[in-house]
Simulated scan of single mutants.
Amino acid sequence: MLDWLDLSWLNGANVAVILFFIGVAGLVLRKNMMISVIAVGIMNTAIILAFVTMGSSVDHVPPMAAETVAAAADPVPQALMITSVVIGVAVQTVFLVLVLNHYRQHKTLDWDEAKAIRAGRPPAGTATPSP
């Protein structure tokens, strides 16, 4: 049906690279803080996917099902990625709390307006009081 579509390049490592750069683009190109939170989550997921893909092999079986030690998959990378997932969730949570706290105080999610507020200038689009 889709003979013209060659998906031989589609593997875990390539998808991880694509996802990572989608996250980088979200951080660089967007001014919204919530998009930045989502972009960091996408980048974290891409890194985990890259490590899991590079550490996987079709020749190995789970350690509990292996009959020999040579046939068993190494459980250390899996344990490290589970730890990475937990740390990633914690970082996302802290980032989200900081963004929500900033929004409650300043009523903006724009990075440029946040920089202006921090520098003591009025944010763009607000009227300055005349003397």
Rank of each mutant, 00 (worst) to 15 (best):
D3R: 13
D3A: 11
W4C: 05
L5F: 12
D6H: 05
D6M: 00
S8T: 09
W9C: 00
N11F: 00
N11M: 00
G12Y: 03
N14G: 00
N14W: 08
N14I: 05
V15Q: 05
I18C: 03
I18M: 08
L19V: 06
I22R: 03
I22G: 02
G23N: 04
G26Y: 00
V28R: 05
K31C: 04
K31D: 12
N32G: 03
N32P: 03
N32Q: 05
I35F: 11
I35R: 02
V37D: 07
V37W: 07
A39K: 04
A39D: 03
V40Y: 02
G41S: 14
G41I: 05
N44A: 14
A46S: 10
L49D: 04
A50F: 14
T53E: 01
M54G: 14
V58F: 00
H60F: 14
V61K: 02
V61C: 02
P62D: 08
P62F: 10
A65R: 06
A66L: 07
A66G: 08
A66K: 07
E67A: 15
E67Y: 10
A71P: 00
A72S: 10
A73T: 08
D74E: 09
V76K: 12
P77E: 06
I82L: 15
T83P: 00
T83S: 12
V85R: 05
V86S: 10
A90L: 13
F95R: 04
V99L: 06
V99E: 03
N101L: 08
R104P: 00
T108R: 01
L109Y: 07
D110F: 03
D110H: 07
E113V: 04
A114N: 10
A116C: 05
R118D: 14
A119Y: 04
R121E: 15
G125F: 03
T126C: 01
A127W: 11
T128E: 12
S130G: 13
S130Q: 15
P131L: 14
